[in-house]
Amino acid sequence: MEKNEKTSLAVQLQTPAKRMFWMEWRGRSITYISVWIVILVLLSLLWFITSKGLQPFLNGEVTLSQFFSSNWNPQDNKFGSLYIMLGSFMVTICATIISAPLGISAAVFMTEIAPKWGKKVLQPTTEILVGIPSVVYGFIGLTLLVPFIGKFVGGVGFGLLAGTLVLSIMILPTIISISVDAIESVPQKYREGSYALGATRWQTIWRIVLKTALPGLMTAVVLGMARAFGEALAVQMVIGNVPNAPFDFFTSISTLTSMITQNMGNTVPSETFNQILWSMGLVLLLITLVFILLIRFITRRRDA
């Protein structure tokens, strides 16, 4: 009798198992498929862009040294893209030089100087800034900034300066929000220790808060740079799109993204020019990956 009861319990424990097991298995599989879709999309993106970008070199139409020279003349089949790449770097670096101090200062303001007021006003401000589409930034740059520079500062208006200013506003919210996270994660006791030693607020911010938050702040700046480097339309609209040497603020230049945006639709896939645009896309992709690795390196050092 007792033995029977025991078997019936064992049976009872097992009966719903099969149904439950399959239900769980099915659900788990759905999520597994979802993440594999993400992985496969990314891997195929990397593969397609890489193979397409390497094509002109593998076909022997252009050599790497030609590609990395400054001799650009598509009519004459010269595709030296050095100035274009430098253009991307210049506009990114200049925008970061403006935006990083401003963004970090704004983050300090929100966390250390006036947390209540700062959060209430600056937080929504950055959220709205981040939501403004890049064509709108480009449109404002084109219709407000470019004529203004042309009239009052110098040159025709298009060029490095206009690109820099537009980008510096665009990457500002990125830098602010990540800097705020970094500064907020500095333990309160560090600040108290500093004030207890008689330091002023500025000394505490400069010597303790910013120093401790440095890896996070670096992440913020690098992410901002990555965003600036990859931004296409807003830059294309104000930069002028002539592949000049990018060392003068007032002459029109080109960047990798502006070149692709401008010409991808106007060339046919059989042209070398078109294939070179894909190579530029590959360079853009690789530099973006370098930025991501850099961020990983910074954050890993902080965790260690």
Binding site: V38, V41, L42, L45, F48, I49, L223, A226, F229, G230, E231, A232, T257, I260, T261, M264, W278, G281, L284, L285, T288, L289, F291, I292
Partner: peptide, 13 residues
């Protein structure tokens, strides 16, 4: 990586 890809690259893909 995917969330930091420039959108123009996604456009190319």
């Amino acid at each position: 990586v995917m969330s930091s890809l420039p959108s123009i690259i996604i456009g190319l893909f």
